[in-house]
Design a protein around this nucleic acid. Structure first.
Lengths: 164, 164
DNA sequence: GGGTACATACTCGGATAGTGGCTGTCCGAGTGTCAGAGG
DNA sequence: CCTCTGACACTCGGACAGCCACTATCCGAGTATGTACCC
């Protein structure tokens, strides 16, 4: 029971962030096709494609069709926050959905109160703290916190992957 | 698509908080049976029972069997935080489950890095901010932020519900 | 009158569906690149 | 040498099935109260 997540977040979020980080390191080498990214992380290509399409639709990634097309970063790594990626992949609604049960049933207040119930407010406050932390972290920050050799190694391995 | 929650949290959380708040206001009037709470909020009794059982197992509520039994608060309202309720109902694992995809596939680092990946760290930081906010809010705080007449009205309506 | 047995009203725990979202796959359509044929 | 045409390698978007957690319900068992019955 203790392995059940408090709030479930799709696996695509982890995929998306990793792909953005990799694309950031591979910037300048041209678009990266889905198949290569999927082999890179050993992920199902078709489903990964769906996730990256969402990121492209949000402007986080850029997709170029054609024979040498693929996905590349849609804007500078400093301007891509984790919040952007999460919102693009999972939607914009918060984790706590207030169904206003206080207004139903015998004990309900009916339309007596028009303001938000205090529970909704309290949960929203926590959610905002979470969003703020996510928005404060950009892809560039993740790049900076990684070992200095990461960029070089990523480019080298990608070259091997492209040639092999 | 914009109605899809970022992280899904079960509806039982809202139920649980509302029930705790109601039980706090009804303290001193003896245990409240499930059927009455369910009618109070117009919720399915059997499923609500399952949720409150989880709260009782966590020590947040106290359940007394027998003919005049029911649920009551397991400890003082000041010592029941929203984090306690959420953790008891949804489990203790975080929303972001790092599956370490960086270690898989062609581009993976294998066992090269033993530390946590920076993505996991960043997501955990946001999650901790969320937890901290939830832990800072207690049932007593919610009671204090409600209109002063709430306690009296709750007790009066409960008396009507019990007699009717 | 006092003690015992039974009915009652609850909770506890397990077993069992229904439902919706996430996961994963397949297919047709559109688009840009490149090679090759023809002028 | 230049241009046009076709093959190719991608992305885009929709349709579809499988799986799992949440939701919801039912049933038997346990427990405390309250009453009725018997001595």
């Amino acid at each position: 029971m203790c392995n059940v997540p408090i709030m479930k977040m799709g696996a695509g979020v982890e995929w998306g962030i990793h792909c953005c980080l990799t694309l950031a390191w591979l910037e300048g080498a041209g678009p990266v096709p889905i198949g290569r990214l999927a082999r890179w992380f050993d992920l199902p290509p078709e489903y990964l494609k769906k996730r990256l399409q969402l990121l492209a639709r949000a402007g986080i990634l850029e997709s170029t069709p054609g024979v040498q097309g693929g996905f590349s970063l849609g804007r500078r790594p400093e301007r891509i926050t984790l919040m952007d990626i999460v919102a693009a992949l999972e939607g914009s609604a918060g984790p706590f959905q207030c169904t206003e049960i206080r207004q139903r049933g015998v004990g309900g207040h009916g339309a007596e109160f028009t303001g938000d119930c205090s529970i909704k407010t309290a949960m929203r406050r926590a959610e905002l703290a979470w969003r703020r932390e996510l928005a404060a972290q950009s892809i560039a920050d993740l790049m900076a916190s990684a070992p200095p050799a990461s960029a070089e190694r990523t480019r080298r391995r990608y070259a091997d992957l492209a040639s092999g």
